[in-house]
Design a protein around this nucleic acid. Sequence first.
DNA 1: GATGAATGAGGGTTCATTCAT
DNA 2: TATGAATGAACCCTCATTCAT
Lengths: 224, 224, 224, 224
Amino acid sequence: MKPRRPKLFSGATGAGVPVGSPPSARGAKAAARRGAILDAALAEFSARGFAAARLDDVARRAGVAKGTIYLHFKDKEALFQELIRSQLSPVVGSFESVLASDLPLAMIVDQAIEVFVRDIYGTHRKQVIRLIITEGPRFPALAEFYYREVLARILKAVRARLTRALERGEIADDALIRFPQLLGAGAVVAIIWHGLFERFEPLDVRAMIRVYFDRLVLGVGGAA
Amino acid sequence: MKPRRPKLFSGATGAGVPVGSPPSARGAKAAARRGAILDAALAEFSARGFAAARLDDVARRAGVAKGTIYLHFKDKEALFQELIRSQLSPVVGSFESVLASDLPLAMIVDQAIEVFVRDIYGTHRKQVIRLIITEGPRFPALAEFYYREVLARILKAVRARLTRALERGEIADDALIRFPQLLGAGAVVAIIWHGLFERFEPLDVRAMIRVYFDRLVLGVGGAA
Amino acid sequence: MKPRRPKLFSGATGAGVPVGSPPSARGAKAAARRGAILDAALAEFSARGFAAARLDDVARRAGVAKGTIYLHFKDKEALFQELIRSQLSPVVGSFESVLASDLPLAMIVDQAIEVFVRDIYGTHRKQVIRLIITEGPRFPALAEFYYREVLARILKAVRARLTRALERGEIADDALIRFPQLLGAGAVVAIIWHGLFERFEPLDVRAMIRVYFDRLVLGVGGAA
Amino acid sequence: MKPRRPKLFSGATGAGVPVGSPPSARGAKAAARRGAILDAALAEFSARGFAAARLDDVARRAGVAKGTIYLHFKDKEALFQELIRSQLSPVVGSFESVLASDLPLAMIVDQAIEVFVRDIYGTHRKQVIRLIITEGPRFPALAEFYYREVLARILKAVRARLTRALERGEIADDALIRFPQLLGAGAVVAIIWHGLFERFEPLDVRAMIRVYFDRLVLGVGGAA
DNA sequence: GATGAATGAGGGTTCATTCAT
DNA sequence: TATGAATGAACCCTCATTCAT
């Protein structure tokens, strides 16, 4: 049986109408443009990197004039940061709710794999993560935002769930509680491999992630 | 007892005198400058990324004039690519020799950990790896070079050793033979964490990597 | 009586509004700027030569920013080539129509002299011709354009008219049909003399050209 | 019968040992290098123009180091000017002696044609003349030198001979005395045509110059 | 003298940002 | 609000010139 999969994203890019904004014709059009710009920005920043991406190309891809970008974003850097932020905020709650459940660890792992493969690796969201990895060092504010609003919260939920698992005897030691970062390593490698080496050697991401969690979390396989 | 550690690098920057070049005063100075430029370039490219790095800054940091860079490198891109290549080529052989040994798997893991922590994570070489990750997509030739000359060879050696391990019963299944990429995941996460989140939450890299390999390769820990 | 003079140019710089473009305010301004840039470019290229001319100076002289040049021309070379082409294309038809007429040869000579003195030598067009002479060897495409679109067509018209003249007995032999290039020699010398030696020894260009054609075409004067 | 042809140049480039310099081994070598540099400079300046020519290429072509050029010439401009001057000085005397002769005008024309075709058009000296035409406006000192030391003297000799011819009835009027510049027009056109259009339409230079002088000076051919 | 590595000013070109329409 | 032409600072790269060897 397929594990239940929490629906993370609505399908559209996350840059839609701000929550609560009035659905007036004018506001809707503005929000649509803003979304188009963010989509285009993601494509261009992913393809070229922040520094090398040209706002000219973003505008052309979004179907707006160059000046229009500045009606929605203060400057190139603000566009970039809002792009990242708008894409990531929705993720946290979903992960938190998955981890808060009292399902057996194995099923949580199933769910996490499914979420990663379908809602992150299978979408442009993997490019957002890649952008954080590649551009983070040049955007301390962004790294901090990501750490505080995303990572820290997810890691906290992970640690909480693992602590319960340890107490219940689901896991044997506190190693992953001390290094919860490792839980993301498989995903990170998948994303990086995709960007760099897919054309040389394709990767069955789902199978790899499965192996990864089996070993790391569930203790399946390994030494004889 | 400390595991024997293969000496990977000589300590000097990898950009020293070309092997076999005569140690003439002229040649030595030229090589020193070339090395200084490469060192400075690594620092600037790491700090700003390829596109945003200024050759002016590279020159100033290297203590040479801007034009001098062009005596040693055709252009900015050539400087970047030679920087990466010069740093990586020496690595492969070392890893291959480690993996070729017939020591027990646990000792090989010990050695690999030591090599990573001391010779990669503890040096500027981790920045080289970070640059491949961040700039690779924009430099297909570089990604290809890295894949062919580094990754593919290391992965081949890994697979060979793991196949022997499987035959000998040192490991229980072929999962890591199918996904040897996972063996680098801990290192990748360590390098990325360092660049992005070290200031928020420091990481005991050696301990983390230890946990990582214990779980992934040796099957130590995990589910109860 | 003054010979009729075909009006060659409108007086404005040749780089005005493209034929047929709508006279919108936007388009008119753009065309005006393009024209100003071409005028400035002609001045700077004439004064310094293509290689030594600075686009900074062109921009300053045109009253625009340096970047504006690149809105109208791909690069310095395109600016140069379009400058030449835009100035020359109108000339051909005029010369062809002059030569197509059935007026006596003497009157055609009168007209040609007038056209050269007033519409070429008396305008910045002489600088364009000078630029072709000086820069042509470094711009094969330009030399070819000039040959095909200007010279070859004019020479063809000249040969046709001279052939008729020979048939009618207006001229005694086919020498100039074989070497119609000579018909431009007086003009070329006038232009070169102007650029190099005018300050040492001024030249009455009209009188010189008059002597030149009298001798060369009409057979007036010469040996006793 | 072939007209006697005054031997204008020794065959070697004019940049040889300065007249009167001692033929010491050292001096001979220095002079040889100086000559090699001047030859190379002529080739490079002709191919690219003064501004675009690179001293690096001059040095390579001359087989010397870049710094060596500065042992012989103050800077690039001095190299250029001395190049032109060294090539032109020998010409004047020859032309003067030709014109001073009391041979019939037709024979002087024969000689002049021969000298031009063989000693100027047939050698790299035509490139020197081309360089004066193309670079003269940017080098007032050079234009002045050329005017004073070459042109003015030749024109003076021409006028003197033509004045005698007029007195003797060899020519019918003073037109060419007033515009002796025209006498060079055929040569100028030949040189320019060669540089720009030879590949499209080759030119029989000797025949053209012959027609030219026949018409202009001797009054042969023309109107019926 | 001869060399050629080193210098650094200069200039072509790009592109984020502004603003008149 | 939207546009896109215009701006000009910034940066890569070249090359004439210098100077230590």
